[in-house]
Amino acid sequence: MSGVLVVLEFRTQDGLAVWNRISWEALAAGQELAAEIGQPLLAAVAGERPEGPAAEVAQKKLARVYGVAHELLAAYTADGYVASLEQLIGAVRPTYVVMPHTYQVRDFAPRLAARFGETLIADVVGIRMDGGQPVFVRQLLQGKLSGDYLHRGPGPCFVSTQAGAFRPETVEAGACEVETFEPKLEAAMIRSVPGERFRVSEKSVDLTAAPLIVSVGRGIKEKENIPLVEELAQALGAELAASRPICDNGWLPMERQVGSSGQSVSPKVYIAVGISGAIQHLVGMKGSKAVIAINKDENAPIFEVADYGIVGDLFAVVPALTAAVRKAKGM
C-alpha cells in the first residue's frame, strides 16, 4: 500500500468539463499529506470521457493521474461511483483517499469507505502531523468546537476536505502520465435513475454584486420581527439577505438565501444579524471584504470570520443601529 489518491470532481455541461472547484483544494490537501508522509501523490477523475479533465490534472506535480472511464459513468450515480472507485482503489492500493466534501462526495464516499470496512473522516478543515501520524481536524457542533481525529483502521484512510479549508494555489505545476482505468460495470449494478439538473426559482434577485448586505438568521425568532432588519437595510441602502432557515420558513424568498445552496456574495460589508455561522452559510459570504456580526452568543462561530462584533441582543442593538445610521446620514 502506498500513495495519496485524490479523487477530483467534474461534470460535463454542453460538452465542456465543469470542475467543482473544491477539487483543487482537496488536491492541495493531498499534496500536503503526501509530502508529510513521503508517499507519491496520485489523482483520479471519473466519467464517460475523463480524458480531457485527466490531462488537465496531469499538468500538476503528481506521480500519476487515472482517468476512470465507462459509459455508465456519464451521469453520476452512487452505485456507479462506488463500484468504479472500489475497483480503482483495489488496484492502486493507496494509503489515503482524499476527496472534496461536495454534495456528490457526501452521497457516495461514506458507502465507498464502508466497502473497505472504514469510516470516512468527513469535512476536514486541517491536517497536522503528530509523531509521524496525521491528525485530521474537523468541526463539531456546527463549528462551536474543533475535534482531532486519528485513523486506526487497516486502511485505506478516507478523508474529505471542507470547502475553503485548503489553498488550491499551493498545488505545484508539473507533468505526469495519464492512465486510463476501465472499471467492470454493468447496467444492472446501478439501481437509481438520475434525472437532469434543474433550478426551481428564477434568479430575479442578484445579490452577488451588492456592495452592502444585511443578512438575518434564526435569531430573529419570528416572521413579525423581519421589519426590524428591513429597516436597518433600508437606512443603509443595503440588500437584505438571510440564512437558510429564514427562507425555508418562507419569511424571506429563497432567492435571498446566502450559502452553499444559495448565493455566494462578496460585498464590501456583510452584516450578519442573529446568524450562528454554520459552514454552509460561511462558504457563501467568506468573500466579503468586511464582516460585522451581531449575536448574543460570544462563542458563535460567526465571530471567527467577523472583523467587527457586537455581543448582544439583536432586538436592542439593531433598532439602535438603525437610529445611529439615520443620524449619521442626516435622515
Partner: peptide, 21 residues
C-alpha cells in the same frame, strides 16, 4: 475496534482578529 477515533475536542482557533464593540 473503531477505525477512526475522536481524540480531543477544544475551542476553535480564531483565524481573524475581531474588534469587539
Amino acid at each position: 475496534e473503531a477505525t477512526v477515533s475522536l481524540e480531543r475536542v477544544y475551542p476553535p482557533q480564531k483565524k481573524k482578529e475581531t474588534r469587539m464593540i
